[in-house]
């Protein structure tokens, strides 16, 4: 430690928050995988378990927020330290909301119950794959805080997937609304499935926010991504 030129107490605080954020990342990714496995397989017990486990995600988010406030109060950080600390709080909230969307999908699974699905699920698995990719990539981006050029490239890559998921969401809505208008027996489940698609679309928005927040940490301006030109 002889060459250490940091602020021990601040650096330890940041390390603790980073560790908690990494743990929260893993919990959310695990919940994502389990949610869709339980949904397609109609594993209602698993869905109940995921709903119960959401409280741990909430708890982690609160801990990250509290610890960040504590470090800000004690250490009066500036510049990149301040950007990181405010962003840890922001991202914890985003992950907590993603947990809520997943929990929401599990609740829909319980509502549909053992009743056979009215759809073959072509578009929703595509949406799921895109949302999962966006979430994984944004979490990775936020965990690494790469240098500006790489951060911009990776963030743009995440954003570029957003249009596709929005398009698929519209298609799911249109298809199901058409079918529901022809057959009223499909209305209840059809509405639930529209909600599943909607939640996936919202998860992808939250992943965008996490990527945008990484750009803020790296450059000091979250909107910088919109004016940044990549050298091809």
């Amino acid at each position: 430690m002889s060459n250490y030129h940091g602020r021990k107490s601040l650096d330890l605080g940041l390390l603790e928050i980073e560790t908690k954020t990494n743990a929260l990342n893993l919990k959310v990714l695990e919940a994502f995988n389990e949610t869709f496995n339980s949904f397609y397989e109609k594993d209602l017990e698993k869905s109940k378990e995921i709903i119960k486990k959401d409280k741990f995600i909430n708890q982690f988010a609160v801990e990250i927020e509290n610890k960040s406030i504590d470090v800000i109060r004690r250490e009066t950080p500036l510049a990149s330290d301040m950007r990181k600390l405010t962003s840890y709080m922001f991202v914890a909230q985003e992950l907590e909301r993603i947990g809520d969307y997943l929990s929401g999908i599990c609740k829909i699974n319980l509502k549909i119950g053992k009743e056979p699905f009215i759809t073959k699920f072509e578009k929703i698995p595509k949406m799921e794959a895109i949302a999962k990719n966006m979430l994984k990539d944004s979490i990775k981006l936020f965990s690494n805080f790469p240098e500006e050029k790489k951060a911009m490239k990776d963030a743009k890559n995440i954003f570029s997937q957003d249009d596709e998921i929005d398009h698929l969401n519209s298609q799911v809505q249109n298809d199901l609304i058409k079918r529901m208008s022809r057959n009223s027996k499909l209305v209840e489940q059809g509405t639930y499935i529209i909600w599943v698609a909607h939640n996936l679309e919202r998860i992808s928005d939250r992943a965008n926010n996490i990527a945008e927040r990484t750009i803020y940490v790296v450059t000091g301006d979250s909107a910088a991504i919109f004016s940044y030109e990549l050298d091809e």
């Binding site: 030129h5 940091g6 602020r7 601040l10 950080p77 500036l78 510049a79 990149s80 330290d81």
Partner: peptide
């Protein structure tokens, strides 16, 4: 400047 204002 970053190192100074962050106390490094």
């Amino acid at each position: 400047t970053e190192e100074y204002v962050t106390g490094r």
